[in-house]
Simulated assay, not measured.
Amino acid sequence: MQLSIVIPLLNEEKSLPELYNWILEVMLAHSFSYEIIFINDGSTDHSWQIIEDLATTNHLVKAIHFKKNYGKSQALHAGFLIAQGDVVITMDADLQDNPEEIPELYQLITKDNLDIVSGWKKKRYDNVITKNLPSKLFNLAARKVAGLELHDFNCGLKAYRLEVVKNIDVYGEMHRYIPLLAKNAGYTKIREKEVKHQARKYGETKFGSERFLHGLLDLITIWFLSKFGKNPMHLFGGLGILMFFVGFLSALYIGVSKLYHLYHQIQDILVTQNPWFYIALTVMIIGTLFFLTGFVAELILRSNRKTERYKVSKTLNH
């Protein structure tokens, strides 16, 4: 099979039939062998009923129905697990991603032997103040931290070699950083392609302005995990030892100073009245806590077991 098209969705009943027909036209025009995988992320409208009808008429339509809304990352994770195509395309269900981009994305992966092709919506039809400007600032920060020259980490339209999606773990809200997850896993052949952006035709966006704050926090998380995820003791233990050493030297200085004043019968304040005593004590305690944090993190990492991330209510055609 050439293509797996993975589409996470939440309450997109109006756009689904049009999106499906559009994808079908592209598949038939280019004679692709394909599967379309819808992941219904807890929709409360008629999205699932529409998907059931599509799956009944076309056995190449596969679907997963979550019992409730678990988020885009969990939806992509579920879709990646069952994808079988040589190239996996991800796209949103709101008609803002253009299916006519799929053939070129497929060619870039197969002909140029790339791992990932990430879409770049250079010309956008979103609100400039609430979405475009924050998105530019977010992407700038992401480029600096990730070390990837991508202009649009948030673009849902991406193409992957099947091996890539089978060997990365998309969790939490890390769907924005799949290229970085892939890079950390050794898949470094990543390219960007400018893609068409459509204005939203039906409904309203499911993502508010808070997603940029969440995105920055996730970016810090993934930076930490990529640097110290396998050995958290290297960070916390190092900081702990450093702070404990600084606190110990400060306490030693206070003690020696007190002995000096006693020996020379110089009047001096009590140790407990010296503010540096409490500073040194606090630094030593914080250093000890850092060290213990690193130790506990190592224990958790070594005893970690996979937990159930989402509950699937129904599946279709797989």
Rank of each mutant, 00 (worst) to 15 (best):
I190W: 07
I190G: 04
E192L: 05
K193H: 04
V195A: 04
K196R: 12
Q198W: 00
R200F: 00
K201Q: 12
K201P: 00
G203C: 05
E204W: 08
F207C: 04
G208D: 15
L216T: 08
L216V: 10
D218W: 09
L219D: 05
L219N: 04
I222R: 02
S226D: 13
F228D: 01
G229W: 02
K230R: 11
K230E: 15
K230V: 04
H234M: 11
H234R: 13
G237D: 12
G240Q: 01
G240S: 00
M243C: 06
M243E: 14
F244V: 04
F245C: 08
G247L: 03
S250T: 07
S250H: 06
A251T: 06
A251Y: 13
Y253K: 08
G255Y: 15
V256Y: 13
S257A: 14
S257R: 14
K258G: 01
H261R: 10
H261G: 02
L262H: 10
Y263W: 12
Q267K: 13
V271F: 13
V271H: 05
Q273W: 13
Q273K: 11
Q273S: 12
N274H: 14
P275D: 09
F277V: 06
A280C: 04
V283I: 15
T288R: 08
F290N: 07
L292R: 07
T293K: 08
T293N: 09
T293A: 13
G294D: 05
V296D: 09
V296Q: 12
A297Y: 11
L299E: 10
S303E: 12
S303A: 09
K306C: 05
E308R: 10
E308S: 09
Y310G: 07
